[in-house]
Amino acid sequence: MSDTAASDDGETAVDAEEVRHVADLARVRLADDEVDEFAAQFGDILEYFAALDEVPETEREEELVNVMRPDEVEEGLSQEEALANAEETEDGFFVGPKVS
Protein backbone atom coordinates (compact mmCIF):
# COMPACT_ATOMS: atom_id res chain seq x y z
CA MET A 1 0.00 0.00 0.00
CA SER A 2 1.10 3.59 -0.43
CA ASP A 3 2.68 5.52 2.37
CA THR A 4 -0.22 7.94 2.62
CA ALA A 5 -2.02 5.66 5.07
CA ALA A 6 0.04 6.65 8.07
CA SER A 7 1.99 9.82 7.55
CA ASP A 8 4.39 11.30 10.09
CA ASP A 9 1.96 13.72 11.71
CA GLY A 10 -0.33 10.86 12.78
CA GLU A 11 -3.05 11.87 10.33
CA THR A 12 -4.60 8.81 8.73
CA ALA A 13 -5.77 9.48 5.22
CA VAL A 14 -7.13 6.86 2.90
CA ASP A 15 -7.45 7.44 -0.81
CA ALA A 16 -9.73 5.82 -3.35
CA GLU A 17 -6.93 3.68 -4.71
CA GLU A 18 -6.31 2.09 -1.32
CA VAL A 19 -10.00 1.36 -0.83
CA ARG A 20 -10.02 -0.36 -4.23
CA HIS A 21 -6.92 -2.37 -3.31
CA VAL A 22 -8.43 -3.61 -0.03
CA ALA A 23 -11.75 -4.36 -1.74
CA ASP A 24 -9.82 -6.41 -4.26
CA LEU A 25 -8.05 -8.35 -1.49
CA ALA A 26 -11.42 -8.96 0.21
CA ARG A 27 -13.14 -9.95 -3.05
CA VAL A 28 -15.85 -7.32 -2.77
CA ARG A 29 -16.61 -5.25 -5.87
CA LEU A 30 -17.53 -1.65 -5.10
CA ALA A 31 -19.38 1.00 -7.09
CA ASP A 32 -17.48 4.28 -7.66
CA ASP A 33 -19.64 6.25 -5.25
CA GLU A 34 -19.09 3.59 -2.58
CA VAL A 35 -15.34 3.91 -3.03
CA ASP A 36 -15.46 7.67 -2.42
CA GLU A 37 -17.76 7.34 0.57
CA PHE A 38 -15.63 4.62 2.14
CA ALA A 39 -12.39 6.55 1.58
CA ALA A 40 -13.77 9.48 3.58
CA GLN A 41 -15.21 7.30 6.36
CA PHE A 42 -12.16 5.04 6.64
CA GLY A 43 -9.94 8.08 7.27
CA ASP A 44 -12.00 9.04 10.34
CA ILE A 45 -12.32 5.48 11.62
CA LEU A 46 -8.64 4.58 11.20
CA GLU A 47 -7.60 7.83 12.84
CA TYR A 48 -9.72 6.82 15.83
CA PHE A 49 -8.22 3.30 15.84
CA ALA A 50 -4.72 4.81 15.80
CA ALA A 51 -5.17 5.68 19.51
CA LEU A 52 -4.45 1.99 20.15
CA ASP A 53 -0.85 3.12 19.84
CA GLU A 54 -1.11 4.34 23.47
CA VAL A 55 -1.92 0.84 24.74
CA PRO A 56 1.00 -0.66 26.66
CA GLU A 57 2.30 -4.05 25.65
CA THR A 58 0.37 -6.39 27.89
CA GLU A 59 1.05 -9.91 29.07
CA ARG A 60 -1.58 -12.14 27.55
CA GLU A 61 -2.37 -14.83 30.05
CA GLU A 62 -4.24 -17.25 27.87
CA GLU A 63 -6.54 -19.51 29.86
CA LEU A 64 -7.12 -21.65 26.83
CA VAL A 65 -7.03 -25.43 26.93
CA ASN A 66 -7.39 -27.93 24.13
CA VAL A 67 -10.78 -29.64 24.00
CA MET A 68 -10.33 -33.21 22.81
CA ARG A 69 -12.80 -35.96 22.00
CA PRO A 70 -12.58 -39.38 20.41
CA ASP A 71 -12.92 -39.27 16.64
CA GLU A 72 -16.12 -41.25 16.09
CA VAL A 73 -18.27 -41.50 13.00
CA GLU A 74 -21.66 -39.85 13.53
CA GLU A 75 -24.60 -39.19 11.32
CA GLY A 76 -24.24 -35.90 9.45
CA LEU A 77 -26.11 -34.09 6.71
CA SER A 78 -27.14 -36.16 3.72
CA GLN A 79 -25.65 -35.14 0.38
CA GLU A 80 -29.08 -33.88 -0.64
CA GLU A 81 -29.37 -31.70 2.48
CA ALA A 82 -25.87 -30.34 2.02
CA LEU A 83 -26.66 -29.34 -1.58
CA ALA A 84 -30.16 -28.00 -0.90
CA ASN A 85 -29.08 -24.35 -0.61
CA ALA A 86 -26.66 -24.30 -3.53
CA GLU A 87 -27.45 -22.09 -6.51
CA GLU A 88 -26.25 -24.74 -8.97
CA THR A 89 -25.51 -28.47 -8.59
CA GLU A 90 -24.68 -31.34 -10.92
CA ASP A 91 -24.52 -35.09 -10.22
CA GLY A 92 -24.42 -34.48 -6.48
CA PHE A 93 -21.72 -31.80 -6.63
CA PHE A 94 -21.65 -28.03 -6.17
CA VAL A 95 -21.11 -26.12 -9.39
CA GLY A 96 -18.91 -23.04 -9.03
CA PRO A 97 -17.95 -20.32 -11.48
CA LYS A 98 -15.17 -21.08 -13.95
CA VAL A 99 -11.74 -20.98 -12.34
CA SER A 100 -10.05 -18.88 -15.02
Binding site: A23, R27, V28, G96, P97, K98, V99
Partner: peptide
Protein backbone atom coordinates in the same frame (compact mmCIF):
# COMPACT_ATOMS: atom_id res chain seq x y z
CA UNK B 1 -21.70 -13.25 -13.76
CA UNK B 2 -19.72 -14.28 -16.81
CA UNK B 3 -16.48 -13.74 -14.99
CA UNK B 4 -14.02 -16.18 -13.46
CA UNK B 5 -14.17 -17.42 -9.87
CA UNK B 6 -12.69 -14.25 -8.33
CA UNK B 7 -14.84 -11.91 -10.41
CA UNK B 8 -18.00 -13.88 -9.73
CA UNK B 9 -17.14 -14.00 -6.03
CA UNK B 10 -16.62 -10.21 -5.89
CA UNK B 11 -19.88 -9.53 -7.77
CA UNK B 12 -21.85 -11.90 -5.56
CA UNK B 13 -20.58 -10.06 -2.50
CA UNK B 14 -21.21 -6.64 -4.05
Amino acid sequence: SDGNWNESFAETRE
